Simulated scan of single mutants.
Amino acid sequence: MIRHVDGGIVTGRFTDHHVHLQLVDHTLLSGSRLGRVVDLGGNPAVLRSLAGPVVEYAGPFLTAPGGYPSDRAWAPEGSIREIPDAASAAAIVAEVAETGACCIKIVAHSEAGPVLDDESFGAVVAAASVHGLPVVAHAEGAGQAQRAARLGASRLAHAPFSERLSDDEIAEQAASVEWVSTLAIHDDAHRAIAIDNVRRFADAGGVVLYGTDMGNGRTPVDLNTAEIDALREAGVDGIRLLHALAPVGAPALFLPVGDPSLARPLTPADLEA
């Protein structure tokens, strides 16, 4: 829902396509400008019980034995499933699907431990397809973004930030994979790489989705204006920015002068001539 009125735009509340609700005070969502969130790594039994806006979730991180984030203290109990081999993928994905997951989250973080081999990665993708679930990949490390796309992931949980992709690689990504932005979580060097990649990806027709990795450091449980600023720096503005924010349902927001950073709850006065 997007409607132009005098002085601004009316939309539904926004979507954050990458959050970790068990790492934040999720009760703050009810008073936020977010109408939907997608949790990309948590305990599905906990996530199913949360009230507030629409909560969709991938369930646990699927990773190699000893792979990221299995050694991280912040990872909640029940938020990680290790895939020992390709033969085990179908049963594990079926278990995750039965929890009500909206997608499958797979980890390919070669800078932080072992990653799934191609056969096991492909087996996860194939099993997810049986259940009609897209695969979202955390791809970090040299070559991992391209590898995730080649093996069938349909979305990257982070716009590539550990290496600058070539224009040819960008074109390949734009043809097959969506990117969740998460630009504002990075240090300056990685942020610059990610913004450069996103600018060329969007110009090539790639789909960029607003996402913050909420819970990674001190992030607001609301619209993150730092992420909006970074997307604009990457050239994702205007209608492209609204599409990235994927407004949903009611209650509605009023965006003075069309600026998502200034969004606030809509009032009757906003609709007066």
Rank of each mutant, 00 (worst) to 15 (best):
W179M: 02
V207P: 05
E56F: 07
L34C: 06
A126F: 04
V130R: 15
A108M: 10
P65G: 01
I228V: 13
E178S: 14
L231S: 04
A94F: 13
V46W: 14
A137V: 05
G42L: 02
I92E: 11
I106G: 08
D203Q: 15
G235L: 03
V125W: 11
E272C: 11
G52E: 07
D196R: 14
R240I: 02
L241F: 03
P134Q: 02
A250N: 06
H109F: 14
L271M: 13
A202M: 03
V115P: 03
T219C: 12
R155A: 09
A202V: 04
S49L: 12
D25I: 06
R218D: 15
A263H: 14
R81F: 09
H17G: 01
G217P: 06
A142T: 14
V257M: 07
G205Y: 02
A101E: 08
D237R: 09
L23D: 13
R191K: 14
L50W: 09
T225Y: 12
D85F: 09
V93D: 00
G67R: 04
V248S: 06
G205W: 04
A89V: 01
E178Y: 02
R81V: 12
A142F: 14
D16I: 07
A127C: 08
I185G: 01
A139P: 08
T99N: 10
A204Y: 14
V115E: 02
L151C: 08
G31F: 02
P265E: 07
S129A: 15
A87D: 14
G122D: 04
M1H: 15
L34K: 05
A148V: 06
R218F: 15
A194C: 08
P265K: 05
I185V: 15
G8T: 03
D39G: 00
L209Y: 10
A174W: 02
T11H: 04
D203H: 12
L253C: 12
C102K: 13
L262T: 08
M1K: 13
T182L: 08
H26M: 00
R72E: 09
R33T: 12
I195N: 00
T182Q: 11
P114Q: 07
S32L: 05
E98Y: 10
R48L: 12
L253A: 10
A94M: 10
H17A: 13
I228E: 08
L242V: 01
Y57L: 01
N216V: 14
G258P: 03
A246K: 12
A250E: 09
V54M: 11
D39W: 05
W179A: 00
E172M: 11
V54Q: 14
D188W: 08
